[in-house]
Write a protein that binds this DNA or RNA. Structure first.
Lengths: 189, 189
DNA sequence: ATAAAACGTAGACTTTTGTCATCGTTCATG
DNA sequence: CATGAACGATGACAAAAGTCTACGTTTTAT
């Protein structure tokens, strides 16, 4: 399982990056069930997770306590509440597993050590941050400019796996659509 | 005017950072009118701008060619299409001045040089990226969970200056609301 | 200074999205 | 494997947001 992480990193840093094993050894392997809470808003986010298998949901609550999903992250990607993780401030978001998952977690201390002692690791961090940012920008532009129906079409085109893999309820919350509305619109395709 | 940039950087890197003057000298001072196009989607984004005075709009077009505004950036902040700037890929967004502005621009080449030769500059970049990311995340969570009326209230609370400073049309597009609807809702406050 | 263009508001109307209640199905868990 | 909870679909209705037209005001460019 660790090889998925190894491959991910070498793909980004070239074939034989220095200290690769040192880096890999600082990650902790975690197996989870579905619906396990990894982060609760208000806590400080202690880990960055690499998802070797499974799926995580990053979400917040609106004023009526409805969940709204900011992001859904699957295999071979990183997930965290980077702003809390980086600053040490309380997280404003929640994270949970959507499926049984296998994760590799690195804590803040170890992450800092790596950033300082392994220059290349810094690049990985920058890539995580850039990828997260790119995703956010894309998502904003999608939200601001598309109707509910068009957002569904967009999801079908760009992340079709999610459509089959996730519950309707979760997809609706990811698209920012009421679940009943989602059900109706989907029927019209 | 350059002192605004100097202060911005020293505030982040401590009182007397090395190479400060070297860094500052790589920026080009630009004075613009209102409505000047700084970046067109499809082009590669060549600059990162520091805004000493004025206001920029980052926007895209939806399928009906309506402008939708992803971000509005004012004094003492950085603005760019970081993803294009970083990767050299064509930009997916447009940038223009909303007001006559004074900017300090650094191009990709100079930026790379600084990143390599001035270690502290790297921190500034990371801060720009993190700030941009934080802003995006906040904006997504706002969009997904708030009604049009609540988004207006949110803007009045968190960026009240924008309400008085910008045209209604622009604010509406920033909030993702039709301009007529915005006009009506505003009247109800 | 002035003509043209853009802007802001308003009313009437349409479309989209949200809410609520219901019902059969599926799924998780003891 | 049984049962209570969660899920997904649907119809009737309500609320929110969008569209179009019109008109007076402000801004911009010449």
């Amino acid at each position: 399982m660790i090889n998925i992480l190894r491959d991910h990193i070498t793909r980004r840093l070239g074939k034989n990056p220095d200290h690769l094993d040192k880096v890999l050894s600082t990650f902790r392997h975690i197996k989870t069930r579905r619906n396990e809470q990894l982060l609760q808003e208000g806590e400080v986010c202690k880990y960055v997770y690499f998802i070797a298998k499974g799926c995580l949901q990053v979400y917040v609550y609106d004023k009526d306590f409805n969940e709204t999903t900011r992001d859904i992250v699957t295999e071979d990607n990183w997930c965290s509440e980077l702003l809390s993780f980086g600053s040490g401030n309380p997280a404003t978001e929640n994270i949970r597993t959507v499926e049984p998952s296998e994760l590799f977690a690195i804590d803040r201390q170890a992450f800092q050590n790596m950033m300082e002692s392994v220059p290349q690791f810094d690049k990985v961090y920058k890539q995580i941050l850039e990828a997260s940012y790119a995703n956010s920008v894309y998502r904003i532009n999608t939200f601001v400019s598309l109707s509910a129906l068009d957002r569904i079409k967009w999801l079908m085109e760009y992340r079709p796996m999610l459509m089959t893999r996730l519950s309707s309820k979760l997809i609706a919350s990811y698209l920012g659509i009421n679940k009943d509305v989602y059900s109706r619109l989907k029927a019209k395709l």
